[in-house]
Every structure is written in structure tokens, then in C-alpha cells.
């Protein structure tokens, strides 16, 4: 038991810069590999639907637009996305990627939707079955 055992620490910090950051005005640097929002590189997507199947939040939707032309549309519902990056892991051709955006709030959930319309790519996947 010592009275005022905290005082030296408190007074020392009185003359120090605050540890907190003025956040929305001063942005902090994100570490590399930060899991932000998922996005698609349409030129490498082979429409294997592994991402759609594995997405825990059912945020990925792949719609066939024209069967003959092999045109597809991928919609990522960012309002449902839980940013787990399982789609990136499931993708056999590295078509799904993560950016580092995290300030994606919006007044309307429809604005968070991201869409890509593309022709199916013909690439040999890295492995026969998508990795877990």
C-alpha cells in the first residue's frame, strides 16, 4: 500500500504526446495483408462458384446472363460481407482478392453492392479441387 503510487506516471504523461490519434482526421497506416473488402478480377474468373459456395454470409452471388456467350455477372453484397476472406482462399485461380478498404459505410445498403459482368475465363486452375 503506497499512497499516490500512480502520480509519477500521470505527471510524466502530462508532458508527453497523447497516445490516441485524431482518427477521422488523421488516418493510420494499415498493415499489409489487412482484410478489407473482397473484389473480383474478372479476367481470371472461371466461374467455378467455389466462393459462392463457401461464403459464410452468402454475400457472393453469380448469375448467368447469357449461357451461349458464357457471360456471367458477379454481385458482391458488401452489406452482408463479414470480411473473412474465405472467398480468396477458396478461389483456385486467384480471381478473388482483398483490398484494404474498411471505411465503407453508407446510408443505403444498395450502394454497397459491387457488380462485375464478364465472359468466363479459360484458365487451368492451380489444383483440381479448390483448397480449403
Amino acid at each position: 500500500m503506497r499512497i499516490g503510487v500512480f502520480i509519477p506516471e500521470l505527471v510524466r504523461h502530462l508532458f508527453k504526446k497523447p497516445a490516441t490519434v485524431d482518427y477521422p482526421f488523421i488516418k493510420q497506416e494499415l498493415p499489409p495483408g489487412f482484410r478489407g473488402s473482397p473484389y473480383l478480377k474478372p479476367e481470371t474468373c472461371i466461374v467455378c462458384r467455389a466462393c459462392e459456395r463457401d461464403c459464410p454470409a452468402e454475400a457472393i452471388e453469380i448469375i448467368s446472363i447469357n449461357e451461349a456467350e458464357k457471360r456471367f455477372k458477379m454481385i458482391i453484397h458488401n452489406d452482408r460481407c463479414i470480411h473473412c476472406a474465405q472467398c480468396v482462399d477458396s478461389c483456385p485461380t486467384d480471381a478473388m482478392n482483398m483490398d484494404t478498404k474498411f471505411e465503407i459505410s453508407d446510408y443505403d445498403r444498395h450502394n454497397l453492392k459491387m457488380e462485375w459482368e464478364y465472359v468466363r475465363a479459360v484458365i487451368k486452375p492451380k489444383s483440381a479441387e479448390p483448397k480449403s
Binding site: 495483408g33 489487412f34 482484410r35 470480411h83 482483398m98
Partner: peptide, 18 residues
């Protein structure tokens, strides 16, 4: 910060997989 650097997120690390 360490957890964010090694797993990619601060709270839900999502580092485990089966």
C-alpha cells in the same frame, strides 16, 4: 496491432481453417 499484422484483422482473426 500484432494480431492485426499476423492475421489481417483486429477482432475476428479468421486464422483457423480446418
Amino acid at each position: 496491432d500484432i494480431l492485426e499484422t499476423i492475421t489481417g484483422n483486429r477482432v475476428h482473426y479468421g486464422i483457423n481453417t480446418i
